[in-house]
Structures are given as C-alpha cells and as structure tokens.
C-alpha cells in the first residue's frame, strides 16, 4: 500500500479517490501508518483505510479468503456512476504494479470522455492512437493497428 501512497498525487491528478480495505481495525491502520508507512512515504498514508474486520466487504467483492480470514489482493476501478470497469484479484504473495492500474484508469477515462465512441487497443497509453469501432473498421483493424504498436 505504500507504493500507492507514494504515487497518490498521480492518482489525485487523474481525479481518483483511493480506498484501501483490510481486516485490521481502524486503530491498527493508524498505528501501521504512524509506525511504519509514514517512514516509507513522506507525510504517511493520504487515503482512506477501511476496517473490514468481519470480512463483509471482502465477501461482497469476492476477495474474502474464508480459510485464512484475510482479504485477497483485489483491485477495482469504479467509474463516477459507481460501475466497476476493471477488476483484478491476486493471491497474497505477489504484489501489484500500480503503473498498470494507472494506465487502465487513463484508458477508461479516455473512453468515457469520447462517450464510448473510441476504444483503446492493447497496450494503449495516452497519446497513442485509439480505434473508432464502426462498419468501416470491420476487417480493417490491420490498417490502423498492429501488435508492434503495443
């Protein structure tokens, strides 16, 4: 979570609010922030740290590991309408790559800004060409996009 905290400004610039969830109480979140995370990230954790001690939230999102009594590493991108646009759930021993989440957020924001008229091909990043789905594009994607552009 410290990686997210360190890049919080980047997320704020994109208008993204961050909410983290674990089974620890809000009291434990405070001590983790004060004793450890604030030593990794200047100013400590800037976002909301939710306490889900009973696992109710994790269960609702399919991120609850019943046998261990912990949350799995779940990450959800929720749009301004409250709709889940992307999700990823990993088992605990491997950490995430925030840059990929940011890329996905930028792509979903781009699609939304065009009212869904444009689509972002594989590996899209801001500044790269998008696709405009329609009758003319059918069978002609090869003319405007190929895997080397990823």
């Amino acid at each position: 979570m410290s990686a997210v905290a360190a890049n919080y400004q980047k997320l704020q610039d994109l208008g993204v609010e961050v909410i983290s969830v674990s089974v620890d109480s809000h009291f434990v979140h405070k001590i983790w922030n004060d004793e450890e995370l604030s030593k990794m990230v200047e100013g400590g954790v800037p976002f909301h740290m939710v306490a889900d001690q009973a696992g109710n939230v994790g269960r609702a999102y399919g991120c609850w590991d019943e046998s261990q009594g912990v949350e799995l590493r779940g990450r959800f991108i929720i749009d301004p309408d409250g709709v889940i646009q992307a999700m990823e759930v990993m088992t605990p021993p491997v950490g995430r790559k925030l840059a990929e989440t940011i890329r996905q957020i930028q792509a979903f924001q781009h699609v939304r800004a065009t009212g869904g008229k444009e689509a972002c091909p594989a590996g899209w990043e801001p500044g790269k060409p998008t696709l405009t789905p329609g009758p003319d594009l059918v069978g002609n994607v090869w003319k405007v996009w190929n895997p080397s552009m990823e």
Binding site: V16, V21, V28, R75, D79
Partner: peptide
C-alpha cells in the same frame, strides 16, 4: 462508498497491515 459517487475510485483489498 456511495458518497464517492461522481468520482473515480480505486478500491484495493490487501491481506493485512
């Protein structure tokens, strides 16, 4: 969560502090 309606939200679960 619904208080964040109108904003993009990144919701992250993790095993524990």
């Amino acid at each position: 969560l619904s208080d964040f309606s109108g904003k993009w939200v990144m919701l992250c679960f993790y095993p524990g502090d």
